[in-house]
């Protein structure tokens, strides 16, 4: 299907990469269908999660393994039920990125990731109880010994 995107005009996305978000995302409750697509810059692939019905919201997202290895979300029963999954191992997780003017300050929302059930094509933004997971984890600042 072809969708209007925030950053790339009209983009063709694979039907298999379109997910239902029955409750939308926090602050964007009306956007109930989101598409995932890749854009490559300088050989580096970037993943975007884009509303199908509006050009906003659009999020740059990362799989945890790339920038937050060891991500171990404790997904609660209500969230699993909403995603029609029985264990969190069935789910794929995406972390929303926020990119400040200086890109080294890139931060990831590890506290409330996007959970997707690839089988049922249902997605949901969940809020984890893990206390050490931050809304603004900075992978590169932490590396340099500064507070995340």
């Amino acid at each position: 299907m072809i969708i209007d995107t925030r950053d790339f005009g009209r983009v063709e996305v694979d039907a298999g990469s379109v997910f239902a978000f029955p409750e939308g995302l926090y602050g964007f409750e009306k956007d109930r269908t989101m598409a995932l697509f890749v854009r490559t810059y300088d050989d580096i692939p970037f993943l975007y999660l884009q509303s199908v019905t509006n050009t906003v919201p659009c999020f740059l997202v990362f799989e945890p393994v790339d920038l937050f290895p060891g991500f171990a979300p404790e997904v609660d029963a209500d969230d699993l039920k909403a995603l029609e999954a029985t264990t969190s191992s069935e789910l794929m997780f995406l972390l929303i990125a926020n990119v400040p003017d200086s890109v080294e300050g890139l931060s990831l929302n590890v506290k409330s990731p996007i959970a997707i059930n690839p089988k049922t094509k249902i997605g949901r933004q969940i809020i984890l109880q893990n206390d050490d997971y931050s809304l603004r984890y900075q992978p590169f600042s932490a590396e340099e010994g500064r507070d995340a």
Binding site: R6, F46, P57, A97
Partner: peptide, 14 residues
């Protein structure tokens, strides 16, 4: 997050 430019070119360099 949705209101800021993703700056993929700069991120790719990083």
């Amino acid at each position: 997050a949705t209101n800021t430019d993703a700056k993929p070119e700069s991120l790719a360099q990083l």
